[in-house]
Amino acid sequence: MKAIHFCEYGSPDVLKFEDVEKPVPNDNQVLIKVRAASLNFIDPGLMRGPLPLRLMTGLRKPKRTHLGTDVAGQVEAVGKNVTLFKAGDEVFGVARSTLAEYVCARERALVIKPASVTFEQAGSIAWAGFTALQGLRQGNIQPGQKVLINGATGGVGTFAVQIAKSLGAEVTGVCSTGKVDLVRSIGADHVIDYTKEDFTKDDQRYDV
């Protein structure tokens, strides 16, 4: 199968599109034929290898040579202990090395893709969307509460605004001037332009 990988640190020029061995799922994994995958903030760091990160990823050469964690696709095979999915199911979630034609993922790291969601949409949800959902759940948001989303146009922030609104919160998003309209378009009730206003110095208080 084809996959994108890198054998040295550097710019995107170090990426290679080459033939690699097709993965085989273990007893608790699902083999997915990848239809869409996306990158997150960690991927450029893994590729470029700044010195502090190399203490974990390898000083001279990267230990992990593949990128991508978000994935959406169709189940091709399942391990003998897998009970939630079967061949042919359309799924999305988190895996490792998703910039490939096939990838293996843990059963618990996947969910069924709704028919109304495209593979491209589903393939960009997992890392940022799950992070936003986890954070908001820890906040135990109740309808009518005031929620402030700082960094409302980042990967996590855009999901957080929409999820908080769906939970019935009154949402304020913080962003720069050029992104005010975007934050309003995804559902924020109020928008603070941090280049003009410091929300840490006003009298407004938030529940989360």
Rank of each mutant, 00 (worst) to 15 (best):
I112G: 01
I112T: 14
I112F: 02
K113M: 07
K113Y: 09
K113Q: 10
K113T: 09
K113P: 06
P114R: 06
P114M: 06
A115L: 03
A115D: 02
S116N: 09
S116V: 02
S116F: 03
V117C: 02
V117P: 00
V117D: 00
V117F: 01
V117I: 07
T118M: 07
T118F: 00
T118G: 14
F119A: 05
F119N: 12
F119V: 06
E120F: 06
Q121G: 01
Q121H: 11
A122N: 09
A122P: 00
A122M: 00
A122I: 01
A122R: 01
G123W: 05
G123P: 05
G123F: 05
S124E: 00
S124Y: 00
S124C: 06
I125L: 15
I125H: 03
I125S: 00
I125M: 13
I125Y: 09
A126T: 01
A126L: 00
A126Q: 06
A126C: 06
W127R: 11
W127E: 06
W127C: 12
W127S: 10
W127N: 11
A128K: 07
G129C: 11
G129T: 10
G129L: 01
F130C: 01
T131E: 02
T131H: 05
A132R: 07
A132K: 04
A132Y: 08
A132G: 02
A132Q: 05
L133P: 00
L133D: 09
Q134W: 07
Q134H: 13
Q134N: 09
Q134E: 11
G135I: 09
G135S: 05
G135A: 07
L136I: 15
R137Y: 01
Q138N: 10
Q138M: 13
G139A: 15
G139N: 10
G139D: 04
G139C: 12
N140E: 10
N140F: 09
N140Q: 14
N140C: 12
I141G: 10
I141R: 14
I141Y: 10
I141E: 12
Q142N: 08
Q142R: 15
Q142H: 07
Q142A: 09
Q142W: 01
P143E: 04
P143T: 05
G144W: 03
Q145F: 04
K146P: 04
V147E: 02
V147Q: 08
L148G: 03
L148W: 04
L148S: 11
L148E: 04
L148C: 11
L148P: 08
L148T: 01
I149P: 13
I149C: 05
I149W: 02
I149K: 05
I149L: 04
N150V: 15
N150M: 06
G151I: 04
G151H: 13
A152D: 08
A152W: 04
A152I: 05
T153H: 11
T153K: 10
T153E: 07
G154T: 05
G154H: 08
G155Y: 08
G155S: 15
G155A: 15
V156C: 08
G157S: 08
G157D: 08
G157P: 07
T158F: 06
T158A: 08
T158S: 15
T158P: 01
T158I: 04
F159C: 08
F159N: 13
F159I: 09
F159E: 00
F159Y: 15
F159P: 05
A160W: 03
A160N: 14
A160M: 09
A160I: 02
A160E: 02
V161K: 02
Q162M: 13
I163T: 12
I163N: 09
I163Q: 12
